[in-house]
């Protein structure tokens, strides 16, 4: 299902790219589809591209939802789909 965890930009790289942090994992993504983002901003990433910028409040609420989902998952057997 179309879940997308907010990613925090930790470093701006050359060629309109950036390093993002998703739950402690760092990935390189393209910023070619979003404007005006910088270090500390949250973005939604899809297949290697940032597709939307999230304001901090929205990102916090979304991350809290995912944290709840992970703890719910840990209480149950099976996998997230």
């Amino acid at each position: 299902m179309c879940l997308a965890i907010p990613a925090r930009i930790v470093q701006i790289l050359d060629d309109d790219k950036a390093l993002v942090d998703v739950g402690g994992v760092h990935n390189e993504i393209s910023l070619g589809l979003v404007d005006d983002v910088g270090v500390g901003d949250y973005v939604i990433v899809h297949v290697g591209y940032a597709i939307a910028r999230l304001d901090a409040d929205d990102a916090d609420r979304t991350l809290a939802l995912f944290a709840q989902m992970v703890s719910q998952h840990e209480e149950q057997s099976g996998e997230i789909h």
């Binding site: 879940l3 979304t62 939802l65």
Partner: peptide
Amino acid sequence: ILEGRPVAEALQALPRLFSI
């Protein structure tokens, strides 16, 4: 994850969770 929430809260959560 939407279960046990007030309807309004669940509807706000939906596009956040499934943002693609």
